[in-house]
Design a protein around this nucleic acid. Structure first.
Lengths: 230, 230
DNA sequence: TTATTTATTTATCGCTTGATAATTAAAGAG
DNA sequence: CTCTTTAATTATCAAGCGATAAATAAATAA
């Protein structure tokens, strides 16, 4: 609208104002911008706005993607792929290391991958939309993080193993509590723009410390209640 | 579309299939449905879909609201007004009651108002959209809940008052942690449809117990670090 | 009954949307 | 330079959007 057609050959800007790109390069550029665009505006963001942001015309998007839907699909893959490091799972269960160190290490590592504007907002947007990817992801968190954490807590506090007494939902809820403390900070940041001067890694350390110092008796009580039921 | 025009005079259904409503009644009906509709689909939900759901034609909406925007405005008011009970603030600071009871009472009461499909989703939707109402709300939480909680913790653990040593951001982060545990459960429920067999009130009790049993030394360390800086 | 009022519907407008077809122009090959 | 290829643009379509105006029909008053 505001751009006159002739103004595309920007002489003053100089640098990489190339008009024709290699298809691979152009596609990568589109995807990269689309990721941020949809993270900001949600998936109802308009293709014309996206194109304007990229600096191309709207129909050009359709040379690289047959539909908006397919572009969104691509964006999903881009955001969700390789955000989970399987090594983290071993990090939690490595009993040579004190549990507090393990939890701190895990959540610090995890925050490096997940405390990210694009990731957090996409995760929330697709949750609202009801995309199944979130269910699977959170079930993964439950099985690969929270249940192992409960098991390690059992071991630390000298309680029965999960094989002896299965882990209760209410017991898992304790671990969800720690996880919620962690993830809610990301929400405050990226959804509500609530900045804080508090250092993130210090906050994680303190959260883990509070959790471990307090969880013992509560878990013991829960497990004992389960024992009596058998 | 699928309804034939004549089928409106449903004879079999009988009950309250009145065609013409009093304006007040109709308006209330529209608002009530709009609240749920926008909570489900977000504010980009289409007026035609909303009308179909209400069982009226789309132009009728415009007899009661001059624009979609004004209807959304009304929905906001409906959802946000009177969701905060000022009495809760006194609940936290009442030192005749043990702190654990106070925190349990507060979060149980609060959950009755806030563990709600419409409220949670609207809160997240408007956060993503960047509506200022959320900033204000969360700043309210910070000042009316979290800061008082920190002050009460100070008192319980025999630490200096906030007047003597101001409450640090990192200290507030501890209280945000408890709050996050609490709110993240609502998110799991209403955004991600992750049901649990765990009872909510029990979960709150356990969360508070873990928090109070573990927070003492961590807070003491933080406050002592602040003392040295003076 | 007849007349009046007004809640509700039908029909439609202007604009925006995702998407397509036709056209232009930048790069490489000969 | 000329020819070919194709990245990118211009022009446009059909459907869907919020919104308006005119027509209809249900309630009330006379």
């Amino acid at each position: 609208m505001l751009d006159s057609p002739k103004s595309q050959t920007k002489s003053a800007t100089g640098s990489s104002q190339k008009k024709r790109l290699d298809p691979d390069e152009r596609e990568a550029h589109i995807v990269a911008e689309a990721v941020r665009f949809f993270a900001e505006h949600g998936f109802e963001g308009k293709t014309r706005d996206l194109a304007k942001r990229i600096g191309i015309t709207q129909p050009l998007l359709y040379r690289y993607f047959p539909s908006k839907e397919s572009l969104i699909e691509r964006v999903y893959n881009e955001v969700y792929v390789q955000r989970w490091n399987p090594a983290w799972e071993g990090l939690i269960t490595d009993r040579r290391v004190p549990l507090s160190d393990r939890l701190c290490s895990f959540y610090k590592e995890y925050s490096r991958a997940v405390y990210d504007y694009v990731w957090v907002r996409m995760f929330i947007y697709s949750g609202l939309k009801g995309v199944d990817i979130n269910d699977r992801y959170l079930r993964g968190i439950k099985e690969k993080v929270l249940r192992p954490v409960c098991a390690e807590l059992r071991h630390t506090h000298g309680l029965p193993t999960p094989q002896e007494i299965p882990i209760d939902e209410q017991e898992l809820e304790l671990a969800w509590g720690l996880h919620g403390s962690f993830f809610y900070r990301a929400i405050r940041f990226y959804i509500y723009n609530l900045t804080t001067t508090a250092d993130n890694e210090t906050a994680i350390e303190n959260e883990v410390r509070v959790f471990l110092a307090g969880v013992g008796p509560v878990q013991r009580k829960l497990v004992e209640a389960l024992t009596k039921h058998d």
